[in-house]
Design a protein around this nucleic acid. Structure first.
Length: 926
RNA sequence: GCCCGGGUGGUGGAAUUGGUAGACACGCAGGACUUAAAAUCCUGUGGCCAGUAAUGGCUGUGCGGGUUCAACUCCCGCCCCGGGUACCA
């Protein structure tokens, strides 16, 4: 009947895609007697460029897991949606005048078409789009819940603002100090609280809210007209477009993620993320344990520093304040005023980029003030320098040049004398941050090892009342306002400059339709241009900003559980049933932002009682990037002659990227090249060995590098099953690798060979009902065991190899018995769903293979026949030696040797079994 | 600089986590089929040496040491590549 040809593949794949859709084969219910399993992909941002072969890598892996788990009897949630708000659509609108809603919808359609072609088992009835008002109604609702909560430090969890108000009314804030030490009110009693005006009360509450409005230093990007999050700024420029970014004070929404720093850190121990991912998050949170120390200044003020190394207290030779530190103006002596002001002017004139570029540059100014070391009353000079940051710790440090590299350079540069407290550990040339030195010149610490002295000093400081234990975090609160149009509006109304939450019944606050997306420029968002919308009624205004894309993405995995609910973000039963995402697959580029915000939102929702879990993702897999493999041609300067790569050094050439699709390996299709662009129609070539050889480079896959390979093309040439298996075959899921079609034929040949097992030479379907031989069963069970094992470790590349071996062996055995082939069809179906559906129906089954159950392997077929020999130790049979049947006789001596060795090392612990192959002990089971 | 990964044939990559390194696939070479080519199938394929041959020997997992009966795997030192981070006290 049919050969596994291009036409047949197309017929089979189209047929099954249609059946899957028409019969809603992948629809999943929220109620089931089966155990649940939740497999999730990081939903894509639907860019205009469409999918390239790099995108589906993770989707294919998760699809395999989802199909496998389904066959294993789980009720599997495997949804897909779109992270559809975002900057690129808005930039596109500014440049082309096409409304983001329109371009986004078009892009989503294209993505869905491409995804459909790969044969994923998504339950599309659960699709969500973050820009859909029915969706972002709940993004806004959750935001309001966060707005309506505060972090109770004594309980370590979020609570409702109403509870905080109760506390204030009964006891003021003595047990719950204001998180911000600079707020104008710090302590208030219950009667103070009652005496506050409404505005004052709201201002105080704002200092506690987990979503709050405050003047903060933000990353302002003039070119984009918006504020960027820290993770959207790379090396001082915007991650999109590479525009300069400056610090600016603006009234912004922020999420008080810092309150959750400790729980976010602790939670990492309970979830299965890769070491590198956990490490990135830990670094981002940046916990450091140390203490504060108070230095009295000669002029009377108290200067508090934070240090992780109180053990070096006797090595303090100077103090440094951040230039922006509050004390600077106050303590500067008249003699130093000019120098300090000069320096402040210099610092103010430096942009983020300058500072980034010149991190190593040493600058500073002496204030003229002196601080008194509380432990030995030594007076040390107080300096200011930009290497001390206002935002971290107390904005001031104690300088210990012998132990800290930056302090050392600073001391050398300004000729400050250096005290050595670590003896020979300090050479005089560079600082040594060791913990192991025995302290010298350190009075009561002399003779102590540094790491042990830390606690001694903290205790002593506490006794003397000059310091206390302190934990600091690098992480900042998350800026949550964007001066953009294409995002979720904030569901609040300002009255008297105080934001009040909108009522739930009035949600969603829909994004107004407009064609004016231009930022207002002043720092207000484009929504400020829409006066009717902004001004609700006299004295009542809306927020002109919108939320960042992270908002919609911070909880979408919850919405998938119950996507059409009008009454809640998801029904409680559905949330309890689906619970955590069992496996989350996506790129490591979301290591900090998305994954931290998702974890934060889930923790808050958990604290407020909406969820019974407080980590969203049980296991995270980071699929590697598939990089592009670019090709270059070399044009001789000023001509239209192109020289082959091996000869290019003989000429003066310019490299040009050429479309990878007209290069075969490294050999350029010169005809196709002439047709590629009109400029090259007249191209001439200098060949080597009759071929034009291109240069190559591995770089990211990008349209502008002409190295994009579109999956549609591969599917057209080989079919989706080949694409799926080939992407898995390419290498370990988590490894990055360049895309290359070298080898795709091997996968294609495997599928054809597999197909041919079921067909005779003329292409007719022919499967026998004869009993399988032991050898055939061995091949079957070996494959089933290997593949099932690989599922646990996500080693799909070796599974594909195993299937290839299996097909080769069964072909050699001329196996065509149903009892072997049918289980294999099921086992292969997660990898190659189309071909297996077709074979499944040819085998006479009605309905989709998804309702089949996964075959269990049986170890009895895998046991090797072997000779068992007893080993006597001290006259008693203590162990069995197992030998392969075909072991030659001359290896007997080696056996004896081996058993002697065994006796030698198992004193008292005789092994149960020793497995030997010629000349070697393979395994000793004790 | 610091913190994570990683380095295995011509290529992508296997190796049950300390047990016959190089599975599987690509590529290449040879053969079969064909008038020919493509496709397909079969055989060989880390390197060096010996042998007509079957085969045998040596060597071999970035470099240098070490532990072990046994090391790609563990330990110490170094080199290189990829990712994260960047004055965080």
């Amino acid at each position: 009947m049919a050969e596994y040809s291009k036409d047949e593949i197309r017929r089979i794949e189209n047929k099954w895609r249609t059946i899957w859709e028409d019969q809603q084969v992948y629809k999943v219910e929220n109620t089931s007697s089966k155990p649940k399993y939740y497999v999730l992909d990081m939903f894509p941002y639907p860019s205009g460029a469409g999918l390239h072969v790099g995108h589906p890598l993770g989707y294919i892996a998760s699809d395999i897991v989802a199909r496998f788990k389904r066959l294993k009897g789980y009720n599997v949630l495997h949804p897909m949606g779109f992270d559809a708000f975002g900057l690129p659509a808005e930039q596109y609108a500014l440049e082309h005048g096409i409304h983001p809603a329109k371009s986004t919808a078009g892009n989503i359609e294209n993505f869905k078409r491409q995804l459909r072609n790969i044969g994923f088992c998504y339950d599309w009835s659960r699709e969500v789009q973050t820009c859909d008002p029915k969706y972002y109604r709940w993004t806004q609702w959750i935001f309001l819940q966060i707005f309506d909560s505060w972090f109770n430090r004594s309980k370590g969890k979020a609570e409702r603002i109403a509870e905080l108000i109760n506390i204030f009314e009964s006891e003021g804030n003595k047990h719950h100090p204001i998180p911000n030490p600079k707020f104008r009110v710090q302590q208030f009693s219950s009667s103070d609280w009652r005496a506050f005006s409404e505005k004052e009360k709201q201002e105080v509450l704002m200092e506690y809210r987990l979503a709050y409005l405050a003047f903060t230093d933000v990353n302002w990007c003039e070119a984009l007209g918006t504020v960027l999050a820290n993770d959207e700024v790379i090396n001082g420029v915007s991650y999109r477009g590479g525009f300069p970014v400056v610090k600016k004070q603006m009234r912004q929404w922020s999420l008080r993620i810092t309150e959750y720093a400790e729980r976010l850190l602790k939670g990492l121990d309970e979830i299965d993320f890769s070491d590198s991912m956990k490490e990135i998050q830990r670094n981002w949170i940046g916990k450091s344990v140390g203490c504060t120390l108070n230095f009295k200044l000669v002029s009377g003020q108290i200067l508090t520093v934070f240090t992780t190394r109180p053990d070096t207290i006797f090595g303090v030779d100077f103090m440094v304040l951040a230039p922006e530190h509050d004390l600077v103006k106050e303590i500067t002596t008249p003699a130093q005023r000019a120098e300090v002001e000069n320096y402040l002017a210099y610092v103010a004139g430096r942009s983020e980029v300058d500072r980034m570029a010149e991190v190593k540059k040493i600058t500073g100014a002496f204030t003229g003030a002196f601080a008194i070391n509380p432990f030995n009353n030594r007076e040390v000079p107080v300096w200011i320098s930009e290497y001390v940051l206002v935002g971290y710790g107390t904005g001031a440090i104690m300088g210990v040049p012998c132990g800290d590299e930056r302090d050392h350079k600073f001391a050398k540069h300004f000729s400050i004398p250096i005290t050595n407290i670590i003896g020979s550990y300090y050479t005089g040339n560079e600082a040594n941050p060791t913990f192991d030195a025995v302290l010298e010149n350190s009075e009561f610490l002399n003779g102590k090892v540094m790491r042990e002295a830390i606690d001694v000093v903290i205790k002593k400081a506490d006794e003397l009342g000059v310091g206390k234990r302190q934990v600091n975090y690098k992480m900042r609160d998350a800026g949550w306002s964007r001066q953009r149009y294409w995002g979720e509006p904030f569901p609040v109304v300002f009255k008297n400059d105080i934001p009040y939450p909108m009522e739930e019944k009035d949600l969603p606050l829909e994004l107004p339709d407009t064609s004016d997306f231009k930022p207002s420029g002043s720092g207000e968002g484009p929504l400020a241009n829409l006066k009717d919308w902004i001004n609700v009624e006299p004295g009542q205004k809306r927020d002109s900003n919108t939320m960042p894309t992270h908002a919609g993405a911070a909880w979408y995995f919850l919405r998938f559980m119950d996507p059409h609910n009008h009454k809640a973000f998801a029904d409680r039963n559905a949330l309890d049933y689906w619970n955590q995402v069992d496996v989350y697959i996506g790129g490591s580029e979301h290591a900090v932002a998305h994954l931290l915000y998702s974890r934060l939102w889930v923790k808050i929702l958990h604290d407020l009682g909406y969820l019974n879990f407080d980590e969203p993702f049980k296991k995270l897999i980071n699929q590697g990037k598939i990089t592009g493999d670019s090709r270059f041609v070399y044009r001789i300067r000023g001509t239209s002659k192109f020289v082959s790569a091996g000869l290019k050094d003989q000429y003066e050439t310019d490299p040009l990227r050429v479309d990878v699709n007209i290069v075969n390996g490294l050999e350029l299709d010169t005809e196709a090249f002439r047709k590629w662009k009109p400029d090259f129609a007249e191209a001439e070539f200098i060949l080597e060995d009759g071929k034009y050889i291109c240069g190559s480079a591995i770089e990211k896959m990008s349209k502008s590098y002409f190295n994009v390979v579109n999956p549609d093309q591969i599917i057209n040439d080989y079919g989706a099953d080949t694409l799926r298996m080939y992407e898995m075959f390419l290498g370990p899921l988590e490894a990055s690798k360049p895309w290359s079609t070298q080898g795709i034929d091997g996968v294609y040949k495997f599928l054809r060979r597999f197909w041919n097992l079921f067909h005779n030479q003329t292409g007719s379907f022919r499967v026998s009902d004869t009993e399988p031989t032991r050898e055939e069963l061995k091949v079957l069970h070996k494959t089933l065991k290997k593949v099932e094992h690989d599922m646990d470790t996500f080693s799909f590349n070796t599974s594909v190899s195993e299937f290839m071996i299996c097909a080769n062996e069964l072909t050699a055995l001329k196996c065509n018995t149903r009892k072997v082939l049918e289980p294999l069809v099921i086992a292969l179906s997660p990898f190659a769903p189309h071909i297996t559906e077709e074979l499944w129906s040819l085998l006479g089954h009605k309905g989709s293979i998804v309702s089949a159950s996964y075959p269990q392997y049986d170890d009895q077929y895998l046991v090797e026949s072997a000779h068992n020999y007893p080993i006597s130790i001290n006259g008693k049979v203590r162990a069995q030696m197992q030998f392969a049947l075909d072991m030659p006789k001359e290896d007997i001596e080696k056996m004896v040797m081996a058993s002697e060795i065994v006796q030698k090392w198992t004193e008292g612990k005789p092994p149960k079994k020793v497995i030997v192959v010629p000349g070697k002990i393979v395994n000793v089971v004790t």
